[in-house]
Design a protein around this nucleic acid. Structure first.
Lengths: 259, 259
DNA sequence: GCAAATTCGCGCACAAACGAGCACAAAACG
DNA sequence: CGTTTTGTGCTCGTTTGTGCGCGAATTTGC
């Protein structure tokens, strides 16, 4: 009605501020604070949560980044689309033949691939991920090479110049990587430029590159471009992939497997 | 204390914090703490356990430790002379100053050293042991560099040419190694020639070398000679060391610490 | 090794919160 | 001026979180 009335965007910005300040806030508190209905607040929160600016809970929202909780992101991501990732991992393992040498990047989907390698024999697996190592150590019958370098606690993986230098001395049959986002136009993306650079080094080390990613990644956008989709030989994803996108992917010369 | 009705997710995050802080906690304690029914707490714990954030037990939960199977030799060795190793670890940690760079070999005694580094600040720790990495990742406040190379399952550590190459690019303030056997005449020994060769590379990378070993190792003999005792600057061991041997060690110019 | 006491998991009930669809009003546009 | 778009609020059927009770399972104590 009058002067005190805010525009929608303005209100949403203030909500983010309030949440970051207090840590958490309820829908009813926000409704009272801004003098709008709870329905409107819910719409705001849905929009903000979609942009990862806040975390939605029943009754309200919380700060997007948990304060001191030592939750390891990759362990969280493991539980998202878990069933799809498991199927993708199994299908990818079928592409591998006994005795091959693999470069296996340790995203949550790459970890699912590792879990399905226990029926293979005599593989040599190179990875940067401590979780992949942990998984494959349990299986016991493969040769395992871990890249060295600075340990990134939130990914449980090594990063940095040392790892890249080491990588450059190695050559493999197949390279398996994951991605944070995939798009026909914008190619394959990682979360940070550093991660993209690192994975690019992966791609150079092998003949055949396999991208493993669940179909939800096709609706996301990520900051750091890694490579174009046509640089990928084989893409393994789940059946949730849009048919139109699937057609475009195949036109780029990518061998597409959906499970 | 200050919980004017929390939201579910918030309560679960706090539970994780409480568990990680205390090590374990009971359902009834949590119920009283948050002022909700035990049923609700059990539901929270089930959700957290499903995400591997805590480990469920009867009556409560424990900190989630993503370790480690029991038939691995080094984990068994950890239990032999455990008390001595713990004292040796603590005493060795006191030799380290904040901000230093360490090369820490991952024997069972080296692991005990790692456990006592959590009151130091801003260390850079280079290691070949996955167990040391695991321990120090929990402590969170150090920079951690893991050597790369072939993973030896029975030691949970990396070995091989790649690791040695990588090592040659690094320099540190202090080198900490363990041993399988120590003798005044025959020097410091490792289990295999490869291990000895590997540890010798360690010794070359730093100014000051510290040998950590419990006194029982002075009565053993091992195959592969690593170096002479006089190549060691400081030896940390337990009071079980024979006085005659102690005198001889000191005559060799080694600074001896017994705890 | 058995009995008692916890503890657990499941189903049900209830209230709060939610999302989807519809209606209305104000602004934007041609 | 009419039409479209956008933001808002309402209603209603559905989902989610919570607590309680009961039978089953697991510890604990002797």
């Amino acid at each position: 009605m009058t002067h005190s009335e805010l525009m929608t965007l303005e209100r949403q910005e203030q909500i983010v501020q309030l949440v970051n300040q207090a840590g958490r806030i309820t829908v009813s508190e926000l409704s009272a604070h801004f003098g709008v209905s709870e329905t409107t607040i819910r719409r705001d929160l849905a929009a903000l949560a979609a942009r990862n600016l806040v975390r939605r809970t029943h009754g309200g929202v919380m700060r997007a980044v948990p304060v001191a909780t030592s939750e390891i992101p990759i362990l969280q991501r493991q539980n998202e689309h878990a069933a799809e990732k498991e199927r993708i991992g199994a299908a990818t393992a079928e592409l591998i033949r006994d005795g091959e040498t693999l470069l296996l990047a340790g995203g949550s989907t790459g970890l699912a691939v590792a879990r399905h390698l226990n029926h293979h024999q005599n593989l040599t697996i190179i990875t940067e991920s401590l979780l992949v190592v942990h998984e494959l150590l349990r299986q016991e019958h493969h040769r395992l090479i871990l890249l060295g370098g600075t340990v990134a606690p939130e990914e449980l993986a090594v990063r940095g110049t040392l790892a890249r230098q080491m990588l450059e001395q190695l050559c493999v049959d197949k390279v398996i990587i994951g991605a944070r986002a995939v798009s026909v136009e914008r190619g394959v993306s990682a979360e940070t430029p550093e991660e993209a650079e690192f994975l690019r080094t992966f791609l150079e080390r092998g003949e055949h590159t396999i991208l493993v990613t669940d179909s939800s990644k096709f609706h996301l956008s990520a900051l750091a471009r890694l490579c174009s989709l046509s640089a990928i030989n084989t893409l393994v994803t789940d059946r949730g992939l849009d048919e139109e996108i699937a057609r475009q992917v195949q036109e780029l010369g990518v061998y597409l497997i959906t499970v």
